[in-house]
Simulated assay, not measured.
Amino acid sequence: MEEMLVFLREFPFFKQLEVEELQKVSSYVITRTYDKGVNVFLEDGDGDELYIIQSGVVKIYRENEAREIILAIFTEGDFFGEMAVLENELMRSASAKTMEETTLYVLKRHDFHWLMNNNPQISLKIMQTALQRLRKANELITDLTILDARTRVTRGLLRLIEDHGVRHEDGIWIDLKLTHQQIADMTGTVRETVTKIMLELQNQNTIKIDKKKIFIYDIAKFEQLTGGI
Rank of each mutant, 00 (worst) to 15 (best):
E3H: 11
E3Y: 05
E3K: 13
L5Q: 14
V6E: 14
R9T: 11
F11C: 05
P12C: 05
P12T: 07
Q16D: 14
Q16Y: 08
Q16P: 11
Q23S: 03
K24R: 13
Y28A: 10
V29M: 03
T31H: 11
R32I: 04
T33S: 12
D35T: 05
D35V: 08
K36N: 14
G37C: 08
N39E: 15
V40S: 11
F41G: 05
D44S: 14
G45L: 14
Y51W: 01
I53V: 08
Q54A: 09
S55R: 15
V57Y: 10
V57F: 04
Y61L: 07
N64Y: 08
R67S: 06
L71Q: 07
L71E: 11
F74I: 00
E76Y: 02
F80K: 01
G81P: 15
G81R: 07
M83L: 08
V85E: 12
V85W: 09
M91C: 02
S95M: 08
K97Y: 02
K97W: 03
K97M: 13
T98Q: 10
T102H: 03
T102S: 11
L104Q: 11
L107M: 10
F112I: 01
H113W: 12
L115T: 02
Q121I: 14
K125F: 05
I126Y: 01
Q128F: 01
Q128M: 09
Q128R: 13
Q132R: 04
K136C: 06
N138C: 11
T145D: 03
I146E: 12
L147F: 07
R152I: 13
R152M: 10
V153E: 02
V153W: 07
G156N: 01
I161G: 07
E162R: 15
D163H: 09
H164D: 10
H164W: 06
V166G: 09
R167Q: 10
E169Y: 10
D170E: 05
D175S: 15
L176Y: 06
K177R: 13
H180G: 08
Q181I: 09
Q182F: 05
A184K: 05
A184W: 08
V190K: 14
T193P: 02
V194T: 01
T195W: 07
Q204K: 15
T206N: 09
I209K: 07
D210M: 06
K211E: 11
K212C: 09
K213F: 03
K213Y: 03
Y217C: 04
L225I: 08
L225Y: 04
T226H: 08
G228S: 07
